[in-house]
Amino acid sequence: MTAYIIRRILQMPVVILMVTFALFVIMHLLPGDPIYAMIGESEASIDPEVIEELRGELGLDDPVLVQYLDWASDLLRGDLGRSFRDRSSVTDAITDRMPVTLQLGLLSLFVAICVGVPAGTIAAVKRNSPIDAFVTLFAMFGVAVPNFWFSMMLIWVFVVELRWLPASGFVALWSDPIEALRHMALPVAALGLTLSGSIMRYTRSSVLEVLNQDSVSTEKAKGMSQRTVIVRHALRNSLLPVATIIGLQLGSLLAGSIIIESMFALPGIGRLAIQSINGRDYPMLQGVVLLFTVTVLVVNLLTDISYAILDPRIRYS
């Protein structure tokens, strides 16, 4: 197990280099000069010498490989560079926005689990009942519906019609919990409920599989109550694959945060990513992608480790 973990950790830098290099090349292939993004459209007439000077200052006149190696060597020294757009520190920009994305992500995951696991379990226990049909329909809705459409519907109902909640802005949980929850309610609902669809489906099929096992029938035959059988045995055993799915949902969560943060005007890392793409802000985008890559790799590793811990039959070699 230890050897496996060490091997996985050693693989991480390779994956990070591959992802960041691929992104670096793709960004440079995109049309749109970062200099023009930086100085604005009105500056088409700017002195070419100034443009060349700016290009030199930003290192954009070097070959792509050299630019990448410069970035990677700075990274090894813990320096993510400065934004092309406003010359702010990339590390500071990401650190400032991290709490927003973390708050959105963790609350959405919490909602997704709180809705998905119980609903999936109930659907499995009440298989082929109207409740099952409703839960399955809800799960399909969650999987199929685009985040932005669901967000607009929530805004229409809760902001325009009922006027209960705000549609934009961020308040940190630790500064004003009530206002924070009011501001987070719609984005978390939009992201969490759509994520809960997958969790619901996996929980349902996993619980069903366990309920059909002989051991469960034996426990029922021994006179255990259905509640005990479901909670202590069926749900416990079926949660293993569900935990894996929850870990793998992280990618969807990060992708969803990009859309949700833009919709609800949350100044998080997802919106920073969009701004960086639009502004051809290579250092900022590299920093954001690096963070996303490391997060996904670490969470996947933790998921694999937890899998082995939860199920002693699993051995990594």
Binding site: P31, G32, D33, P34, Y36, A37, E41, A44, N278, G279
Partner: peptide
């Protein structure tokens, strides 16, 4: 097109 692309192209 996005603004920087229009400026360039």
């Amino acid at each position: 097109l996005e603004v920087p692309v229009i400026t360039e192209k």
